[in-house]
Design a protein around this nucleic acid. Structure first.
Length: 111
DNA sequence: ATGTTGACTTGGA
DNA sequence: GTCCAAGCCAACA
Protein backbone atom coordinates (compact mmCIF):
# COMPACT_ATOMS: atom_id res chain seq x y z
CA UNK A 1 0.00 0.00 0.00
CA UNK A 2 1.13 3.51 -0.57
CA UNK A 3 2.24 5.77 2.22
CA UNK A 4 -0.63 8.08 1.39
CA UNK A 5 -2.94 5.19 2.21
CA UNK A 6 -1.51 5.12 5.69
CA UNK A 7 -2.84 8.59 6.27
CA UNK A 8 -6.12 7.73 4.62
CA UNK A 9 -6.42 4.63 6.77
CA UNK A 10 -5.98 6.77 9.84
CA UNK A 11 -8.65 9.17 8.70
CA UNK A 12 -10.98 6.32 7.94
CA UNK A 13 -10.58 4.72 11.34
CA UNK A 14 -11.01 8.04 13.14
CA UNK A 15 -14.18 8.73 11.19
CA UNK A 16 -15.45 5.34 12.29
CA UNK A 17 -15.14 6.34 15.93
CA UNK A 18 -18.70 6.43 17.32
CA UNK A 19 -19.98 9.68 18.76
CA UNK A 20 -19.34 9.97 22.47
CA UNK A 21 -16.36 7.63 22.18
CA UNK A 22 -12.63 8.21 21.98
CA UNK A 23 -9.68 6.27 20.68
CA UNK A 24 -5.92 6.46 20.99
CA UNK A 25 -3.17 6.94 18.43
CA UNK A 26 -1.66 3.63 19.42
CA UNK A 27 -4.96 1.81 18.85
CA UNK A 28 -5.15 3.20 15.34
CA UNK A 29 -1.50 2.46 14.71
CA UNK A 30 -1.99 -1.07 15.91
CA UNK A 31 -5.06 -1.46 13.74
CA UNK A 32 -2.95 -0.41 10.79
CA UNK A 33 -0.40 -3.00 11.82
CA UNK A 34 2.19 -0.44 12.85
CA UNK A 35 1.94 -0.09 16.57
CA UNK A 36 5.44 1.33 16.66
CA UNK A 37 4.49 3.94 14.12
CA UNK A 38 2.04 5.59 16.47
CA UNK A 39 3.78 8.89 15.83
CA UNK A 40 2.72 8.69 12.21
CA UNK A 41 -0.87 8.57 13.36
CA UNK A 42 -0.36 11.84 15.15
CA UNK A 43 1.37 13.29 12.15
CA UNK A 44 -1.42 12.03 9.94
CA UNK A 45 -3.85 13.89 12.16
CA UNK A 46 -1.76 16.97 11.67
CA UNK A 47 -2.58 16.70 7.99
CA UNK A 48 -6.15 15.67 8.74
CA UNK A 49 -7.30 19.24 8.33
CA UNK A 50 -6.64 18.80 4.61
CA UNK A 51 -8.52 15.49 4.44
CA UNK A 52 -12.04 15.31 3.07
CA UNK A 53 -14.40 14.83 4.67
CA UNK A 54 -12.91 16.41 7.80
CA UNK A 55 -11.70 14.00 10.46
CA UNK A 56 -13.08 14.17 14.03
CA UNK A 57 -9.61 14.52 15.45
CA UNK A 58 -11.12 15.61 18.75
CA UNK A 59 -12.06 11.98 19.34
CA UNK A 60 -8.43 10.97 19.18
CA UNK A 61 -6.40 11.26 22.35
CA UNK A 62 -3.20 9.77 23.64
CA UNK A 63 -2.97 6.55 25.59
CA UNK A 64 -3.45 8.41 28.88
CA UNK A 65 -6.74 9.88 27.69
CA UNK A 66 -5.10 13.28 27.69
CA UNK A 67 -6.02 15.83 25.04
CA UNK A 68 -2.50 16.02 23.75
CA UNK A 69 -3.60 17.46 20.42
CA UNK A 70 -5.81 20.24 21.71
CA UNK A 71 -3.02 22.71 21.06
CA UNK A 72 -3.30 21.99 17.37
CA UNK A 73 -6.97 22.89 17.19
CA UNK A 74 -8.16 26.30 16.04
CA UNK A 75 -8.98 27.04 19.66
CA UNK A 76 -7.44 25.60 22.79
CA UNK A 77 -10.89 24.68 24.04
CA UNK A 78 -12.32 23.52 20.72
CA UNK A 79 -11.37 19.90 21.35
CA UNK A 80 -12.65 19.76 24.90
CA UNK A 81 -15.84 21.55 23.95
CA UNK A 82 -16.43 19.14 21.06
CA UNK A 83 -15.96 16.15 23.31
CA UNK A 84 -18.17 17.51 26.06
CA UNK A 85 -20.76 18.23 23.41
CA UNK A 86 -20.75 14.52 22.65
CA UNK A 87 -21.37 13.67 26.26
CA UNK A 88 -17.76 13.13 27.28
CA UNK A 89 -16.56 14.74 30.48
CA UNK A 90 -13.18 16.44 30.36
CA UNK A 91 -11.32 17.51 33.46
CA UNK A 92 -7.94 19.14 33.28
CA UNK A 93 -7.63 18.14 29.60
CA UNK A 94 -8.16 14.56 30.63
CA UNK A 95 -11.00 12.31 29.49
CA UNK A 96 -12.99 10.98 32.42
CA UNK A 97 -13.92 7.29 32.26
CA UNK A 98 -11.47 7.10 29.39
CA UNK A 99 -11.24 3.37 29.89
CA UNK A 100 -14.99 3.07 29.46
CA UNK A 101 -15.27 5.51 26.56
CA UNK A 102 -12.23 4.06 24.86
CA UNK A 103 -13.05 2.68 21.43
CA UNK A 104 -10.52 0.22 20.13
CA UNK A 105 -10.81 -0.53 16.38
CA UNK A 106 -9.05 -3.82 16.96
CA UNK A 107 -11.78 -4.84 19.37
CA UNK A 108 -14.75 -3.17 17.71
CA UNK A 109 -13.91 -3.47 14.02
CA UNK A 110 -11.57 -6.43 13.82
CA UNK A 111 -12.99 -9.86 13.01
C1' DA B 1 21.79 15.96 0.46
C1' DT B 2 21.60 15.50 6.11
C1' DG B 3 19.64 16.56 10.77
C1' DT B 4 15.84 17.66 13.83
C1' DT B 5 11.21 17.55 15.26
C1' DG B 6 6.73 15.60 16.05
C1' DA B 7 -1.18 15.42 17.89
C1' DC B 8 2.92 8.46 20.49
C1' DT B 9 3.88 4.00 22.70
C1' DT B 10 6.47 0.53 24.99
C1' DG B 11 9.89 -1.58 27.85
C1' DG B 12 13.55 -1.50 31.15
C1' DA B 13 15.74 0.66 35.44
C1' DG C 1 4.56 4.70 40.98
C1' DT C 2 8.30 7.73 37.97
C1' DC C 3 12.16 8.57 34.50
C1' DC C 4 14.98 7.50 30.33
C1' DA C 5 15.88 5.56 25.80
C1' DA C 6 14.50 3.40 21.46
C1' DG C 7 11.54 2.84 17.35
C1' DC C 8 8.58 4.13 13.68
C1' DC C 9 7.92 7.39 9.15
C1' DA C 10 7.02 11.96 7.22
C1' DA C 11 7.59 16.86 6.90
C1' DC C 12 10.46 20.95 7.55
C1' DA C 13 14.87 23.86 7.92
Amino acid sequence: MDRADFFEQVYQVVRLVPKGRVTSYGAIAQYLGARTASRMVGYAMNASHTAEPPVPAHRVVNRNGLLSGKHHFPSATAMQDALEKEGITIIDDQVQDFKTLFWDPNTELAL
